[in-house]
Design a protein around this nucleic acid. Structure first.
Lengths: 124, 124, 124, 124
DNA sequence: GTGGTCTAGACCACA
DNA sequence: GTGGTCTAGACCACT
């Protein structure tokens, strides 16, 4: 499988985000094993060094833990995952609100807009 | 006035966005004159070339028009401005929705979250 | 009447070209009087200085002659006009041929292309 | 090699045109790697920033693609190249025809003129 | 004074 | 080494 990457954002960050999304969505659970660096690199079609960096940064953030000779695992620390979820949600929401406000929209208009999208989604 | 710039995004893009926000919010109207390249550069504390690039890209996008020896102006084409507003809104909203969905949130949860932020804002 | 000018070419040159085209096409004849600087400026909607420069350069080229207190006239020198026509034609043709050759077209293809345009023009 | 540039046209545009001509003529094919910004700059004797701009504008036009840390490549999109060829041809031909018409020439005269040039070229 | 182009040289992130 | 951004300062043409 060949993933599409956004040109204007570091690939390693995009992969990091993707993993985090999988975690908070429940696709990965605490303690799950991640693919090996090499396998993962082949799967997404990037250099192994790039995946290496992804795992490093995720470990630095306490999201994953690498065990020598065994592989890399989602942290057993459930609280860390909850915090991650809140962090990500907050960042996305805050960004949305400030961007919309800079354009002059009110909270009411923001909610209406999302409601409309929800309807479009239903009917499609 | 000395503006703060996000270190992970080109300054010229941040300035472009800022101008576009001013336009859709109504701070600038169609036909309005923008500051000269050099004046604007001094105002925001960047090099004149950076502003030059901002104006160039905005002109390519049909948002402003540069007139020789006279200055740079918001386009007279009101329709273009309406389109700009829709484009910007759509991009922000779509981004928000897809990011939230990737994390597993429903439309309902998205709206609830914003509602909560609105309340916090009131009381603050 | 408000003329449209090409942004990326000096206005005075565009006006010069326009006058020369009128001359070689026969719209102006040798000895004809051109509009006064001010009238012409109003007609085409530019600054009078710009027209002033147009007349100056045309006079330098021997295309027009200005007579004090009377106005500006197309030269009486018919030979000069014939030379002008040849110069302009040659420039246009040479430019066309070299541009097409740079793209890899043959003389035969150039003529075919023009033939096609001629047909489209007929039927339209 | 030291190239000659037309003083009345931005160097970056002249280089852009040159590259496009190489593409439509087949000197470059889809997927080919272009010289690095710095190498190209040395080759044509201009500043690296000028080449940078050339690549940027070509990328915006969908003609080339820049890949981080790898280089700049002609697009893999063959259709885009075909469109480019048609665009360039059309622009040149239309310009020739309108210029000649403004001077009062007929389609027949245009073709005769080119035919004559072709003969001169043969005998030279 | 206005926009537009170019240079020289620096620094950064990515691979 | 590769593209990308930014600065400082210069020069040009147009008005």
């Amino acid at each position: 499988m060949n993933h599409e990457f956004n040109r204007h954002k570091p690939i390693y960050k995009q992969i990091m985000e993707h993993i985090c999304q999988d975690i908070v969505r429940g696709t990965y659970e605490h303690g799950d094993k991640l693919p090996s660096v090499r396998d993962f690199a082949v799967q997404v079609g990037v250099n192994a060094n790039t995946i290496q960096r992804v795992y490093q940064e995720l470990e630095r953030d306490g999201i994953v833990e690498s065990k020598r000779g065994q592989g890399t695992f989602i942290t057993e620390n459930e609280e860390r995952i909850n915090v991650l979820k809140e962090e990500m949600k907050k960042e996305i929401v805050q960004r949305f609100i400030t961007d919309m406000m800079k354009m002059g929209f009110t909270y009411h208009e923001m909610m209406t807009t999302i409601e409309e999208e929800a309807k479009n989604d239903d009917s499609s």
